[in-house]
Design a protein around this nucleic acid. Structure first.
Lengths: 359, 359
DNA sequence: GTGAAAGCGCTAACAC
DNA sequence: GTGTTAGCGCTTTCAC
């Protein structure tokens, strides 16, 4: 730090006091336009750089928010962070990033770090491993604004932003039904995560709505991986009544399903329909391209930050109302080849083409 | 901020002065072990949270580094940030993230923000748009440690971490040659970016080494997109002498090439070999799976941070040596199906299988 | 090994 | 509309 210019330097040169300079720089209404202009010009001339640290210490606001994610390497979170940072910087907030690597230890460290950095609020996506939420409770006790996104915990009363997993799953399943598939299987994601429970419910309800009786035999427990998708296919094909479509709880699983079906030389779409969830970027590039449910990642980041800013504002007023808001984003279908219409006899295909244009 | 416990509170309860408490908390060697223990216990008891802001103001070190990237949504950068943050937090540094969206305006804002946040150093990947580097020069003038990664500028004397694009391209091209391809085309990336120039050079030199005369007709100017990959195929197939392989400067282009070849029902590998650069995550999932050159993203992040920390240390000693270090990472080949051996007559295939196992 | 005291650069309550 | 003054919570020099 070779930079030494402070508001005092500006004040001295202008025969003012540092208080006035500070006010001028912050556009305080009680300062004359003339003085403001003078001060700002001098500040530029001297290449003054405001010291946010000093200002934070005095004012108690750091204009910084902490973001806790499992890993920036994961597409999904990179994308959410993109949304968060975009909006944050546009309203004058900086963001600090901390990765948990899905561990509770690092999650606690993240909070420790953010607490000592006196962030104005925290945005977090809970680590898979986390069962004990005491560190988050600590934040509540200290009245640090907190918003969860994607990975939430319903027992804690924390505002959150998620997408409507139930609805996404419902629409995906219904889409397969409307395209002529009738024996639709589902590859589950880990059921201790709420999103995957909801996707399962959405799947079942869509079947019921269309008077298709859910069949437990068509449910395979996967673990969010290509391998479990392949294993699911192996399982489905040894059933006496083989399914004609699969709704996979997530895209990598769907990819595994497609790989498994390809190995069996099953015609997709036509003889078999597949749809996934997440809209990972490989989906549109594989063959057949994968239909999927988009999770509105960037939007999620923006909404989460918006909610947090609202909480911070409330907090400043010391209203401490414990706002229990929950924003549920609408999933967006990306229909591609893998789920196009079933070949009942010889018609269709035109339908397929139409569908694939939609996405 | 409902937290009010300061070192003074600890001092009072223990009949010490705040100075002693501060030293104890920072493990100063002149404080007795007994006092340290006492102070730390009391700190825990009172749930004291160190105020990093106050400490930064006084000490002049923020223990924070600023990271400037084009977008967290891009795989590559998410991955580098992953590496940076991982290492940073392990040595007690926090990171602030700012996205430029490839614009110079936001890049300047990023620097402005980091300057006022008094970060101890900055890690940056230059925005595509940036031609004027005055904002970076300003950092040098102020002696703020700066390290570039991936996107550098050779005219500025700034330490940097990049991968060996030349070598990656050389190896990729040579790999195609060794697999029996002889008429190898290249789809260029934007030539105002140094990495892409280097990849072009690497390609040419590999051909020369194997006594293949580079043919300008086999060079197509792309722009890092699926479309330009397809367009390249269109171009190549109207030549009187069609190539039998393509080294694409980047994976999306390679994907376009594969799509174009598929439309033409060209057999890959065998009749045609393709290799890309970047090792994007879709590569291993498309058909044929795409061979590519990995850019060591996580490693890049770690090395960049390591270099920055070194600079910060030097800076503290006021040595200001202007360390002009340049770390060049070694690219790693990921060989998959798309570049497996050429079918000269009827042999091979076994070779392919072997190759595909390597990756 | 500990205390005393000064001050990092800013903001804000209180004057007038 | 501007000046005065008192810190925010910590680190650090200088004592002894």
């Amino acid at each position: 730090m070779s930079q030494k210019i402070t508001i005092h330097d500006i004040a001295r040169e202008l025969n003012l006091t540092s208080g006035t300079v500070s006010r001028a720089l912050n556009d305080n209404s009680r300062i004359s336009i003339k003085t403001k202009k003078l001060v700002k010009e001098k500040a530029n001339e001297l290449k003054y750089q405001r010291n946010k640290i000093a200002s934070s210490l005095r004012s108690g606001k750091s204009q910084t928010i902490g973001v806790i994610i499992p890993s920036a390497q994961m597409n999904f979170f990179g994308s959410v962070v993109h949304g968060i940072e975009l909006m944050a910087s546009s309203i004058g907030y900086s963001i600090m990033l901390y990765q948990t690597e899905e561990t509770t230890v690092l999650e606690k460290k993240a909070i420790e770090t953010f607490l000592s950095a006196r962030v104005d609020g925290i945005l977090a996506s809970v680590a898979k491993e986390t069962i004990d939420f005491s560190h988050y409770h600590e934040l509540q006790k200290r009245h640090i604004p907190l918003v969860f996104f994607d990975r939430t915990n319903d027992e804690m009363k924390v505002p959150s932003v998620i997408i409507d997993d139930y609805k996404g799953a419902f629409l995906a399943t219904e889409h397969l039904i409307k395209n002529g598939y009738s024996r639709i299987a589902h590859v589950l994601g880990p059921q201790h995560i709420k999103s995957f429970q909801d996707r399962y419910r959405g799947y079942e309800d869509a079947l019921k709505k269309h008077t298709i009786k859910p069949d437990k035999k068509l449910i395979y427990q996967g673990d969010i991986s290509i391998e479990s998708g392949k294993a699911a296919v192996d399982y489905f094909f040894q059933l006496s009544k083989i399914p004609d479509a699969v709704f996979a709880a997530e895209d990598y699983t769907a990819l595994g399903v497609i790989k498994g079906l390809k190995e069996r030389k099953i015609k997709m779409p036509g003889d078999f329909g597949v749809i996934g969830f997440a809209n990972e970027n490989f989906g549109e590039h594989i063959t057949p391209s994968l239909s999927s449910v988009d999770q509105q990642t960037v939007q999620m980041g923006k909404e989460a930050l918006g909610l947090l800013i609202k909480l911070i504002a409330i907090n400043e007023g010391n209203i401490d109302i414990g706002l229990q808001e929950k924003i549920v984003l609408q999933p967006v279908m990306h229909l591609r080849e893998s789920s196009a219409g079933k070949t009942t006899s010889g018609k269709l295909e035109t339908f397929n083409v139409l569908l694939s244009k939609i996405s």
